[in-house]
Design a protein around this nucleic acid. Structure first.
Lengths: 336, 336
DNA sequence: CTGAAAGCGCTAACAC
DNA sequence: GTGTTAGCGCTTTCAG
């Protein structure tokens, strides 16, 4: 059933059917009626691919993320879906195993998906190659938690440095002196920013950061578990662990449990992001909230605004909030 | 940049360029080479929408689910993505707030997304209207956890009845006699099946099911919390709660905590599905495992097989496994 | 207010 | 091996 069939059936031209279906003006009520009836009788539905070809719009918006299964990824996706509800755009999920390795191929992939626009999560959101390829390909984008090239494309941001400083300061204030850090994936820019933030808090408190207390993780639960196990297995173990996200903090919690340590009595643990995991963990995690859902809504909004050729906010900064829960307490007193 | 530009640049016809890009045979190596160079020089990328129009294939596969944010939804999606990796198909996420209410509009929505095929999760997977509309629209599908119309379309199944019977039997074996049930969304077929399974276990043990011990939930955490609160607030409270999924079991856990009850000492709680939540909860949930990820992989495979006109398995049954964790124990002894 | 003609960029079917 | 012709189903001119 094509537009031609409907046109014949209604005794009008194809163009008129097109007008009716696109709510264009200048169609008499009678004709409109006849066309609608003919379409209903023939169970006609416009061919979306033909429309896409001629309009040069697929109405597809992509979400690019390394690890969509994480709590962070879910929240992100829910934000995009929330903004897309009641809009004539669909969400295509584009998982990329390793953005750093495949940066050169990413935009080719997006192109072959015929996307009108994309929401870029870290670390793609900070990748200069991807950003410039995207522009050349004419694919609109908006970015989640960018840290650099802030005028290259619209982005949402948080102050990683300050957020990291605050959560480290909280741990220090509790009385901890021997504090270990589990870093995130080195290909994410926030890994460095957060580390610097922790460093500032240490410095302000007159503490020195011991490099042998910094473990490399990958933002995954398992990497957090392994890193924490390394830190906790020695007799000389830290009294607190600062993980660069909740997923790794949960891994640390699991490692502590495996070693028979109680949290927070023997060990304090903090995360970052305040994803759902943080409340679900036992004890619930002290962390710093990053409004991922809201950022995803805003980024999606920025993409749509571009597609509609509307005024686009180039940058939107979000506030973080320190969330104190049960995974932190004063360090154990060794000398009594 | 179109195929014509490349053809001109390489001094061949458009069809030849098409042949090269589609790896068709009968193109001499030299020509192939020239075409590739011309394409590279012009930064040519085939227009996917034009291909889609003429091939009648969008290479888009949809995942229809009511609540993609849940742990169950995430697992489902990861299964689909896993099967789609390295395939030239993309995943479009189609959340439907209430399948029961909008059944008549669902296929129109899918149609307007130009999907080649869809994976249907409950309760869409059991909806006759959706199934028949899908067939009329020529959209291939495969279903997750279907319970009926098993030859209407390919499906994956588990034995809800047996699984429910087993987990209820486990609770009964622990010595519980006063057992409450939190039902799931009544528009899902498994709600009834599982209830019947619990009933069979009760009957086999010579217990009667008290209707005033059956609460209606909606498969959401909050509905589980509210239902459990109702059950637990009376002085005459049950010693065990059987929830029809993990999400509601977690809600029950939260309700118990709010009322100062310890699990499993004062109250045993079990769920269903064995999603990630079950291991994350504290105490971890006794539940019955449904291999959602595997089922999603299989369903996606069934969709792809249809698109490739290959032989399709019409039904694939999965085994459930009783998983005993910390949320269940013998009931408290009242008489000592 | 309505319609005819001309594509959008690509590929199927057939020639040569 | 390679090119030609004719669409895919729709929308965009531009006439009337």
């Amino acid at each position: 059933m094509t537009i031609i069939d409907v046109a014949r059936h209604a005794g009008v031209s194809a163009k008129t059917v097109s007008r009716v279906f696109n709510d264009e003006p200048h169609v008499s009520a009678g004709v409109k009626q006849r066309v609608r009836e003919a379409a209903a009788a023939l169970d006609y539905h416009p061919n979306v691919m033909a429309q896409a070809l001629v309009r040069r719009r697929s109405h597809l918006i992509g979400l690019v993320y390394e690890n969509p299964s994480s709590s962070y990824g879910t929240e992100l996706q829910m934000g995009v879906l929330d903004r897309l509800r009641d809009e004539p755009y669909r969400l295509v999920v584009i998982p990329i195993a390793s953005v750093a390795e495949h940066a050169a191929e990413v935009v080719g992939l997006l192109r072959s998906a015929a996307l009108d626009g994309v929401v870029l999560a870290p670390p793609a959101s900070d990748n200069p190659r991807i950003l410039s390829d995207l522009q050349r390909a004419g694919i609109r984008c908006a970015r989640i938690a960018s840290t650099r090239l802030l005028d290259a494309a619209p982005s949402t941001t948080i102050d990683d440095l300050a957020a990291a400083r605050e959560i480290a300061a909280h741990v220090i204030e509790l009385g901890h002196r021997d504090i270990a850090i589990i870093k995130g994936d080195p290909t994410h820019a926030s890994t460095e920013a957060r580390l610097l933030g922790y460093g500032q808090a240490f410095h302000a408190a007159g503490l020195t950061m011991r490099l042998d207390r910094i473990e490399q993780g990958l933002f995954t639960r398992e990497s957090g578990r392994v890193a924490a196990a390394r830190l906790l297995e020695s007799a000389d173990r830290p009294s607190a662990i600062i993980a660069q996200n909740d997923e790794m903090a949960l891994g640390a919690l699991i490692a502590a449990r495996e070693l028979g340590l109680s949290v927070p009595e023997d060990l304090s643990i903090v995360g970052f992001d305040d994803t759902e995991l943080a409340q679900l963990a036992w004890p619930p995690l002290t962390t710093v909230r990053q409004p991922v859902f809201d950022m995803a809504v805003a980024a999606t909004d920025m993409v749509i605004a571009q597609l509609h050729r509307e005024q686009v906010t180039m940058q939107r900064a979000y506030k973080h909030v320190l969330i104190i829960r049960g995974s932190t307490a004063a360090p154990p007193r060794l000398d009594c």
